[in-house]
Amino acid sequence: MRPAGLAVSAALLLLFSAAVLLSAAVPAAMAKHQTGHDEEEEEFGYSPDAENGPARWGEIKPEWAACGKGKMQSPIDLSSSRVSLARSLGHLNHSYRPAQATIVNSGHDVMVRFDGDAGSVSIDGTAYRLQQLHWHWPAEHTVDGRRYDMELHMVHQSAHNKTAVVAVHYQIGAHDAFLHKLEPYLAMIAGQKDREENVGVVDPMGARGRASVYYRYIGSLTAPPCSEGVIWTILKRVRTVSKHQLQLLRKAVNNEMDNARPSQEMNNRDVSIFRPYGQNKN
């Protein structure tokens, strides 16, 4: 047995230590609750100078090696000097339909995930079913060196797990009707990583629009693991988004963060453009 005085002192020391640990833990827990983010560094980021920035993605994990060593990486610059007209591509054949959806704050972007059958796009006779859509700001693909304010990616997958992405560019202007319907949910997920909210039925045609002229090339995912063999379709017609809507998207993830990967090397890839007969613009 130890003397009573020593026992009391030991008990008080334990209580003091517990109080110190608790006082340190509470602010951290509150910060995580308020921001939705752990204090730990993200697996990958977009800051060019960071150790987990785009130039280092291929070094972070072995399965992300394509980010650094791939020869068919995206995004690229859609330069007029390398684009060839290919009417044989034909009109973009899609059969989208309204479906139940969930909006998700991934921590890097805002995603609308389709939980029901939202339809598909047909490319070379293969159906690619729409899985989700998300936004990047500023735009990732550039057109003759011009970078627009935002880019939408509609991500599709075939029965054999091949990926096709339809992209839409935006510039600041009038508000976007599709995003307008999502604005209340953007506020609900703001600053809370992995937060999900059911948004009911969403019609993907509102995001796709009705543009008929498009660019086509083979590239990759624009975020890790940067898998290659992705069929890219970038619509030529540029839509508008309001400053307020773009701010809502940025605030939902991180108000100061851009989430666009820099342009990648062409490596002699072909880029085609489809334009219907008699149509010179969009």
Score class of each variant (00 low, 15 high):
206 G>A: 08
202 V>I: 15
186 L>G: 10
202 V>E: 05
220 S>E: 02
194 D>K: 14
230 V>H: 07
185 Y>R: 03
203 D>N: 15
215 Y>R: 11
208 R>F: 10
213 V>E: 07
181 K>A: 13
180 H>F: 07
212 S>V: 12
223 A>H: 10
202 V>L: 04
228 E>M: 04
218 I>A: 03
213 V>N: 11
230 V>R: 06
193 K>I: 05
224 P>A: 11
234 I>T: 12
186 L>P: 06
182 L>A: 11
223 A>D: 04
208 R>M: 12
215 Y>H: 13
218 I>F: 04
199 V>M: 01
202 V>T: 13
214 Y>M: 00
212 S>H: 09
218 I>D: 06
225 P>C: 05
199 V>G: 01
224 P>H: 09
200 G>K: 04
201 V>D: 11
188 M>A: 15
182 L>Y: 12
201 V>K: 11
181 K>L: 12
186 L>K: 10
199 V>E: 02
215 Y>F: 14
199 V>Q: 06
194 D>S: 13
195 R>G: 05
195 R>S: 13
214 Y>G: 03
230 V>E: 09
208 R>V: 00
217 Y>R: 05
216 R>C: 00
195 R>M: 14
185 Y>F: 15
222 T>K: 00
212 S>K: 13
233 T>W: 06
193 K>T: 08
209 G>M: 05
191 G>D: 09
228 E>C: 01
211 A>I: 02
199 V>W: 06
203 D>G: 08
222 T>P: 00
192 Q>C: 11
209 G>L: 04
202 V>F: 03
186 L>H: 11
222 T>A: 12
187 A>I: 01
204 P>N: 09
191 G>V: 12
200 G>Q: 09
193 K>L: 04
